[in-house]
Design a protein around this nucleic acid. Structure first.
Lengths: 144, 144
DNA sequence: ATTTGTGCAAATCGTTTGCATCTGA
DNA sequence: TCAGATGCAAACGATTTGCACAAAT
C-alpha cells in the first residue's frame, strides 16, 4: 500500500495502472506490462522482453517493445539501468537501490536494501545538484 | 613519484611506458599515448581521441584508435568507464575512484578521492567475489 | 472522426573485423 | 626477415525512425 517512490500502484489493474500513467491501454502495452510487473523485480532488455512476448503468443514488434519501454520509463514505471555493456536494461524496481552485476553472465540483480550505505556524499559542484547515485558492484566467480 | 595503483610510471618517457606495457612504441601509439597522458586525468571516447589526433596532424584511423584504447586498457594504462550512454569512455586515471556525470552535457569527471565513502559493503553471494565497485553520481543543473 | 499506437523495413550509430599492406625490431 | 600494426571498407548489433495501416476514444 506504500506510495513511496516507485511501485506506486498497490494492487491496481494493469489497465488502471496504464491509465494512471497517461498511456492508452492497448493490447501490446497491456501484455508487456503484465510480463514486466507480474513477477516482482526484473532487469530486462528489449530483446528478452520481445522474446517473452512472442513466446506468450503476443505478437509485438521489437520496435514497439522499445517504444513501450521508453514510454514506461518516462511514465516512471521503469528505470533505465546504467551498465557499460552494449545493451540497455530496464528495472521494474524504481525505488532507490543498487545493483550487483555478474560480469561473467551479464546478469544483474538488486543489492538488498540497506546492505550498502553511502557515507559522506561529496558536495556537488556549484550550480549542480545530485539527481541520482548509481552503485554497481561488479562480481566475478571465485576461481577455485 | 608514487607507485600506487595506476599512474605507475612516475616520469617515464612515453616510449618506455609503452615498452613496459609490452607494446611496441609505434608512431600511432606514441602519439595517442601522448594525447592521453599529457594533460592529467581525462575521460575520453574513441571518437574524441581520433579527432584530437587528426587535429594534431597525426593521421590515425578510427579503427586503430579503438584497437589502441583496448590494448592500453588490457595493459592497465586505461580503465574503461561504465556509463549507460551508448558510447564507451576511457579514463586515464586507473586508481580506485568514482565519478560525477553531468547528464546535460554527457560530461564526466572525478569525485575527489575520499569525498565519498562506502560503508557496509554487502556480502557478495556464495561463490562470488567483488571485482570492483563503481559509483556514478549523476548531476543536473539546478533549475533557476 | 480523430488521435494515438503499431509494424515493418530502412536508416543510424558506435564499434568490430577481414584482409592487404606497411613498419619496427 | 617477419611478427606485429595499421588502414580501409565492409560487417555488425543494438537502437531509432519514417511512414502506411490499424486500433482506441
Amino acid at each position: 500500500m506504500t506510495d513511496k517512490h516507485g511501485h506506486e500502484a498497490p494492487r491496481m489493474s494493469t489497465r488502471a495502472r496504464l491509465r494512471a500513467a497517461g498511456l492508452r491501454p492497448t493490447r501490446q502495452r497491456m501484455a508487456l506490462a503484465d510480463l514486466l510487473f507480474a513477477n516482482g523485480d526484473r532487469h530486462i532488455s528489449a530483446e528478452i522482453l520481445h522474446n517473452e512476448a512472442v513466446s506468450a503468443s503476443v505478437p509485438v514488434s521489437l520496435a514497439t517493445v522499445y517504444n513501450t519501454l521508453h514510454q514506461f520509463t518516462r511514465a516512471g514505471l521503469l528505470r533505465e539501468v546504467a551498465l557499460d555493456g552494449t545493451k540497455t536494461y530496464f528495472d521494474t524496481n524504481t525505488t532507490n537501490h543498487h545493483h550487483f552485476f555478474l560480469e561473467d553472465d551479464n546478469l544483474m540483480f538488486d543489492v538488498p536494501e540497506d546492505a550498502l550505505r553511502l557515507d559522506r556524499l561529496p558536495e556537488p559542484p556549484e550550480g549542480m545538484e545530485i539527481s541520482r547515485v548509481d552503485v554497481v558492484i561488479r562480481l566475478r566467480r571465485v576461481r577455485s
